[in-house]
């Protein structure tokens, strides 16, 4: 299963505990607990709903955090 995270395609092994949900993916990416916002295929997912979003091959995830801005 191929999922694009912040523009970088990433392969998840076929035997990865399925179905993979967004919370598990964020945990694997080690960003749970950070000040972040997450979009799944362009849709912003509220913090409390990560575990309800199940991922499939070809999905795109954006993970963002506050940064300096003018």
């Amino acid at each position: 299963m191929k999922i694009t995270i912040n523009g970088q395609p990433k392969d998840f092994p076929a035997n990865f505990e399925a179905p993979l949900n967004l919370y598990d993916l964020l945990a694997q990416e080690e960003v749970i607990g950070m000040m972040i916002a997450v979009a799944h295929n362009g849709n912003v997912i509220p913090k409390g709903n990560y575990a309800q979003i199940f991922l499939k091959d070809g999905d795109a995830i954006e993970i963002v955090a506050p940064m300096q801005g003018g």
Partner: peptide, 21 residues
């Protein structure tokens, strides 16, 4: 104060900034 959003990963580079703000 104005801020932006940028991609984050496990390095957590946005978190130190946010702690200041």
């Amino acid at each position: 104060v104005t801020v932006s959003l940028r991609r984050e990963n496990k390095a957590g580079k946005g978190q130190d900034f946010w702690n200041i703000i």
